[in-house]
């Protein structure tokens, strides 16, 4: 099986929010991010983006004014 590269991994990390990944996709993603600090950070950053847009939806942007 071909090793997953960062380009594929970032695409799957995004699609994770849109569809259910196959077991095969999940496992190869897990193996890749375990070895790749950049992609492991990328996954966390996508969660940060999610949290940020959730704040925008609630009007919860910035401190007290």
């Amino acid at each position: 099986m071909k090793m997953m590269n960062c380009k594929d991994a970032t695409r799957l990390m995004s699609e994770r929010y849109e569809r259910t990944l196959s077991v095969r996709e999940l496992l190869s993603l897990k193996v890749h991010t375990a070895m790749c600090k950049g992609c492991s950070n990328y996954g966390q950053h996508l969660d940060v983006l999610r949290q940020a847009t959730a704040r925008l939806r609630e009007g919860d942007t910035g401190g007290e004014r």
């Binding site: 590269n5 960062c6 380009k7 594929d8 600090k37 950049g38 992609c39 950070n41 990328y42 966390q44 950053h45 940060v48 949290q51 940020a52 704040r55 919860d60 942007t61 910035g62 401190g63």
Partner: peptide, 20 residues
């Protein structure tokens, strides 16, 4: 298909604090 060294995502410290 690997990150270019200068584009590789770094560690973000305390995003919650940034939101404030």
């Amino acid at each position: 298909g690997l990150w270019n060294p200068e584009d590789r995502p770094a560690t973000w410290s305390d995003p919650e604090a940034s939101f404030e």
